[in-house]
Design a protein around this nucleic acid. Structure first.
Lengths: 426, 426
DNA sequence: ACAGTTTCCCGTAAATGC
DNA sequence: TGCATTTACGGGAAACTG
């Protein structure tokens, strides 16, 4: 009876930030003969609190009742769009905060309910429907964690409304999960992940050698516990890269010039023996939202030397777009500036052939002034470069597939600045 | 009877942004023998609207009545501090917006009133007092214009509450105004303006040659009309420099290494004949919030050649602090990188002697990576540098003085994040 | 003390009003 | 249509709160 409605861009709806406007729409699927007069729909947040009380309670600030109207578009059925809805937290007057412990706010699931009551031929009819589970956040910094919850829920259950889901969340198989991850990249950026990239992610998440069978991944391992030795979880790390791509690397990513997810070992194996100046682009595993490049030089004794630059993050890329960094990169050693060591994008694409379309022409020079530009540079420690060992790693493929299903379950309409949740009355 | 209260930092109080919390405090000056029980004070925004109705109307969102209490500090008199006050605009129900025309929102003056009523020995006593005129803004982008109004009001009138002031604002003499400008720099940054700098500002505002007598400056010329050929007024330009100093140049400014306000002509006159590589720092007159440097080179034929770099603005200085720009600046010409052309800060201070204390050591290098730095560079057009003419200009001095008076009239207390307006009951 | 969470509010962008 | 003004909200930081 209750159907989540159709998708366009996955703008991370189903996450609502307090104090920020959102939009939701309900459609009446059945044709009601004589009820095209005022049919009012009321929307309520967390209408029937489940018996296990929630940690936090919210209410809709703005007017939450509105009359249905014939829809503008084709089919002419009745619908209402609530705009400018806003959520606010109830202040627990007498310390009644249900603190169940355990669950973090981004694991707490909520819902919007819609009700309509009317009479047809002397018959009182009550309609009611409910949105998919929602996550409520108070700051955008919680959005990545909230989105992890929405993904995990919709990946693993068909229940339209199991608000206690994260009390005991099921595991996902790597094959399921890797599909969602690739879909995140394709929907959020435009290009998904290839089998090599997914393999690297699988090994990172599950440990080397576990990539053969279809291993189960726990919710905690995916999004809650930190990667060993790091201060962030797997998903938070991956999400920081999505963000970096979206803001600073979009065309380069979509044109497939960023290998991105490669282990350092594999990176060296790939570059080994390649022509001097061959480089590839890799996302930082040590810092959130960073991208670095590694290039190879062939020493006279036949050894390959590898050098990597400190990862560039958002703040650097704001100052200088990534393509311009690649274009003008220099190394300075004892005051001597070397030529750009980056010549060929792995395997052998001349750098400018790959990247010149993204170069920004230096800004127009106002006449009496010399232009003020920045060039990216690395200072070589005077004791010479750091030699690095290398090793190889395997790379079995992995095929896409569940895409359609996910597309249906996870996408939702978004209208302009605010989010739209779309639901239908039976 | 009504006295504006004492100053500490001029954090631009008297400007209130809608939807942002502010704080105000009232003190009872007379000792009331038997009234240390509940003495309630009510604060009202724009209590007695002047007959010429205001364009916009605001009200205090939060609770505006509070009981006086014995003050914590020394003197033990009664006072109330209203915290978390917030202003919201009234929506004119029936199009009653008084639109007097002419006045912009930052010229519209408002006020806060405070009232207390009580009985002493059977005598009903009403106390009432009012703040200095306030400017209400809705976005920080209006703050510079609002602050201009506050300055102009307090500079030129002693009336505690002439809300129609900007209907016909008086002119200021340049000697008065230049004091306030210098005071803005000293209070906002830490170092005021010297006579040479003020002279340049005077010539810029009044035209060359007008700097001898004590010319009158109109409000419009100061803050409303654009500088000829520019898209901003004199004050908006000056304020953009204050902001630049505060955010990016504070120690360098306070140590007096920024000449800043020099005409291009005078700049060249000063540098002419100086040792090659002598440079000085000048604020951009063409763009808001920009700083540039000009250096001189002595050609073989005995001529001086001057070169200036495109002004650095906020966005560039976020990427690379100004001192590091000076430190590492390079010029590239046909692929050849020259040494840093900046050698001596005018008149003859070796660059590193002046600026090395501000240099940022390149960030710690995470071991396996090469550091990722930016260096500031200018590309010399291949047709060679741009020759520039030069001329000299006079420089009579100008003495400070009214400082104390201004300090009393313009400073107001600020408490933590929010602004405080301080007023006293008679 | 501290970590998780919310609030605050600047500054940019977009929307709105005149 | 263009300009003046307000609203929206991301993002960093401070404040809160168990």
């Amino acid at each position: 009876e209750v159907q989540p409605c159709m998708p366009t861009h996955p703008q991370r709806s189903l996450i609502i930030k307090t104090g920020v406007q959102f939009t939701t729409k309900v459609r009446l699927l059945v044709k009601l003969p004589e009820v095209d007069y005022q049919l009012k729909v009321k929307t309520t947040f967390d209408k029937d609190l489940p018996p296990g009380r929630l940690n936090r309670q919210f209410f809709i600030l703005t007017n939450s009742t509105k009359a249905m109207d014939v829809e503008d578009s084709a089919n002419g059925c009745l619908s209402v769009e609530f705009r400018h809805l806003q959520l606010k937290e109830k202040k627990y007057i007498n310390g009644a905060k249900g603190n169940e412990g355990l669950l973090s706010v981004t694991e707490e699931l909520h819902s919007l309910s819609f009700e309509a009551h009317f009479m047809v031929l002397g018959l009182a009819i009550d309609l009611e429907t409910t949105s998919l589970p929602l996550v409520v956040i108070s700051n955008v910094s919680q959005l990545p964690a909230g989105w992890a919850s929405v993904m995990w829920y919709n990946l693993l259950t068909d229940e339209p409304r199991n608000l206690g889901y994260f009390g005991n969340p099921p595991r996902a198989s790597w094959s399921q999960l890797s599909e969602v991850l690739s879909w995140q990249f394709s929907s959020f950026a435009g290009r998904g992940l290839n089998p090599d990239q997914l393999l690297m992610l699988g090994e990172k998440l599950l440990g080397l050698g576990n990539s053969s069978g279809d291993i189960q991944v726990s919710w905690s391992k995916f999004s809650k516990e930190n990667i060993p030795g790091k201060a962030f979880s797997f998903w938070i790390w991956l999400e920081s890269i999505l963000e970096l791509i979206k803001k600073h690397l979009l065309p380069v990513w979509n044109d497939n010039y960023i290998m991105g997810f490669v282990s350092k070992e594999k990176e060296r194996a790939l570059l080994k023996g390649k022509e001097g100046g061959t480089f590839l682009l890799r996302f930082s595993e040590s810092h959130l939202g960073g991208i670095t490049f590694t290039w190879v030089e062939q020493a006279d004794n036949g050894e390959s030397n590898f050098t990597s630059v400190e990862p560039y993050t958002k703040s650097r890329l704001i100052a200088l777009p990534f393509a311009d960094i690649l274009r003008n990169y220099k190394v300075i050693s004892e005051g001597l500036v070397t030529d750009n060591p980056l010549k060929f994008l792995y395997p052998n694409i001349p750098k400018d052939e790959a990247f010149s379309r993204y170069y920004n022409s230096p800004q127009s020079k106002v006449h009496p002034y010399l232009s003020a530009n920045l060039i990216p540079i690395s200072e070589l420690p005077s004791n010479g470069s750091v030699p690095l060992t290398h090793c190889s790693s395997p790379e079995p493929p992995m095929s896409p597939g569940v895409f359609q299903m996910l597309h249906q379950q996870l996408c939702f309409d978004t209208v302009r600045t605010s989010k739209t949740l779309d639901t239908e009355l039976p």
